[in-house]
Simulated assay, not measured.
Amino acid sequence: MNDQKYLDFLAKLGISSAHPGGFPLTKALLDSIKPNAAEHVLDVGCGTGETSVYLAKHFKCNVVAVDKHPAMIEHAKKRAAWEQAPITLLQADVEHLPLSSEMFDKVIAESVTVFTNIEQTLQEYYRVLKPKGCLLDIEMTSDYKLRPEEIAEIKRVYGVHNVLTTEEWVEQLQQTGFKEVKVYNGLDFLQSMTELPSVPAIELSQGFDAEAFEIWLEHIKTMEKYQALNYRIYMARS
């Protein structure tokens, strides 16, 4: 499986809020960091644009949304047009953001960083954030240190660059320069969710095929095999 195959699968399905916890968790998290109309917010790996549109319409903030996958950008353009949401969409690599330094008050990443060179991407988040800016990042996290052969299998299935524990994620963030690093799980925000997590919405793209179902089955088998695979929410200040 090539590095992009799992991400290509998500793009073919046009899945909204594929990250753990889904859009109900996203809304609870955004309510906790309270973006405002004067702020500039970057949504990296924006996917179909669900979070970006919500930010623009609900919080009235200035939103730039970035995704590397052209199919996701097309989904996001259609959503933004339908919702009449004033967001700026860019097809770009989060490891090399075509954006000025100290441009954003907040950076939102939902199951994105783990699919990249983590060290490089965190440096880019830090670079584009204003001093004392806020990073909100939901990422795959292992409950304990996995063996090298286990990490290799998970990397093969998802195309991720590494599988980190909570402690390793915090260390990476702190080494980048982030401060006040806080770690949460979805249960910490369960009471503030206005709705329970649900099955992500799907908007099929042309070219969806049987191979995509095979990838989905492999994903299910991997999650069943590796019970240590979980997710954490990381909040930090630049």
Rank of each mutant, 00 (worst) to 15 (best):
S32T: 12
R127K: 07
S32E: 13
M235S: 06
K5Q: 15
G14C: 12
L196G: 06
T166K: 05
W169T: 08
E218D: 15
F189A: 06
L129V: 08
V66C: 03
L29P: 01
Y158T: 05
L25H: 02
E139Q: 10
F59G: 05
V107A: 02
G186W: 05
N117E: 13
W82D: 14
F189Q: 06
C134H: 10
N162F: 03
I154F: 00
K106W: 00
P24V: 15
M72E: 04
S192F: 09
N62Y: 02
F208H: 10
G177P: 01
K182Q: 14
K106A: 01
L173G: 02
P86L: 09
T176Q: 05
T121P: 00
K34T: 15
E167V: 09
H96K: 08
G133H: 01
H19V: 05
K182N: 14
E83C: 04
Y54W: 10
R79Q: 13
F178T: 09
P70M: 10
D31V: 09
S198H: 10
E39N: 05
K106F: 00
E39F: 01
S205K: 11
M235L: 10
L136W: 01
I215E: 06
W82G: 07
L135P: 00
Q206M: 13
R237A: 09
N36Q: 11
C134E: 14
G22W: 07
A18Y: 06
P20Y: 14
K78S: 08
E39Q: 14
E50L: 10
N162W: 05
Q120K: 13
E180H: 06
W82T: 15
A76N: 01
K34H: 12
Y125C: 09
Q191A: 15
Y125Q: 08
E180L: 08
R237S: 13
A18F: 07
A109C: 03
H19M: 08
E153G: 03
T176R: 02
L90N: 04
S192N: 13
A152C: 06
Y226M: 04
V199Y: 09
K106S: 02
E119V: 13
L97F: 00
A81E: 11
N2K: 07
A81V: 08
S205E: 15
A81G: 04
S17H: 10
D188I: 05
L89C: 02
K225A: 12
I151A: 12
K57A: 11
Y158G: 02
Y234V: 03
S238Y: 01
F59A: 08
